[in-house]
Design a binder for these strands. Sequence first.
DNA 1: GTCTATATGCTGATAGAC
DNA 2: GTCTATCAGCATATAGAC
Lengths: 195, 195
Amino acid sequence: MARKTGSHSEITGPRVRAAALKLFARHGFAAVSMRQIAAEVGVQAGALYLYTKDKQSLLYDLMQAHMDELLSAWAAQPKADDAVSRLEAFARFHIQFHLERPDAVFIAYMELRNLSDENFAAIEALRRRYEGELEAILQAGQAEGVLSAPDIRLTTMALIAMLTGVNTWYRDGGRLSRDAVADIYWDMVRGAVGA
Amino acid sequence: MARKTGSHSEITGPRVRAAALKLFARHGFAAVSMRQIAAEVGVQAGALYLYTKDKQSLLYDLMQAHMDELLSAWAAQPKADDAVSRLEAFARFHIQFHLERPDAVFIAYMELRNLSDENFAAIEALRRRYEGELEAILQAGQAEGVLSAPDIRLTTMALIAMLTGVNTWYRDGGRLSRDAVADIYWDMVRGAVGA
DNA sequence: GTCTATATGCTGATAGAC
DNA sequence: GTCTATCAGCATATAGAC
């Protein structure tokens, strides 16, 4: 990627984050150097520090933006009346959201240990909030008697792990469309909680 | 850990691998230096090269040993007659095996991208073989008409992701015993495939 | 079998020219 | 806003003393 003279902050900033996202996802945070990111953007290493305080902040900003987007995208979904419909909406939303941004998802799960202590706590809080959304649905469904989850926390973690796992194998252009995949996963979720 | 004069190859070799396993799991392969591993063992960095060709081999050996152990432990399990019983055995085996060695499991999933191309291919082949075991069970169950898996490969990946996810949250001494956890997961697996 | 010493090179981050 | 140049430190891996 050739350097463009006259790049502006509004353009280069996002490009730095996009390059970091791609490289961190591909090789891992610790294995990627600031020089590699700079090369991907088409600037020299020193120039990156105009857009990020340091490497750690770059990682944190990516993860924070991802979690914020996840939470607000879910909050923007229409809220069904009954627990089973809400569970279905959650399953379909989760799969679609995760399939749309595999790099960000990968980083959000794999690079937690490379966050500083306080950054980790902040991201973890956001993750807990998201898990809490599913927990609330399961709790409601249990109360309504329309599904069975003997341990809400365990079931929450199991379902999220199952759904997120779609990113490990799904590739666009394969034999199944995203919707077909979501259909099957939803059937499995429903069966798993006896809904 | 203090240095022991008179250490022997048969002792130090395994200690090097144990130290690498622990540190790779905790901080990630790329973030751990040979000096850190040496310090954990209680020797100087140069001495490590008596036990491993290089850092890459250290990672590969750990992952290969883990996958071999997984495959042979499963092969050693008694083989039930019907597909549903085999599925139950697989679910319980998978959970127990994974809960017993969280560090090795973590590395086996997180450090794939730090393997050289040929090492990656070798590990991936072992992983495929393990997944094939579950696929075969689902295929048989489908043929017997005792369970429903509209897409065998998808269901395989979904179930393995769900089961492996137990390692992200389970801690010994929590409110659930390992057997209780396995009971609940098995119920979810059974429900997910309509068995 | 382990040590110390060392080679060669890359790291994150900063300073100052333009 | 980006460049070049540079600092101090750490990386992997090897050589040779003991």
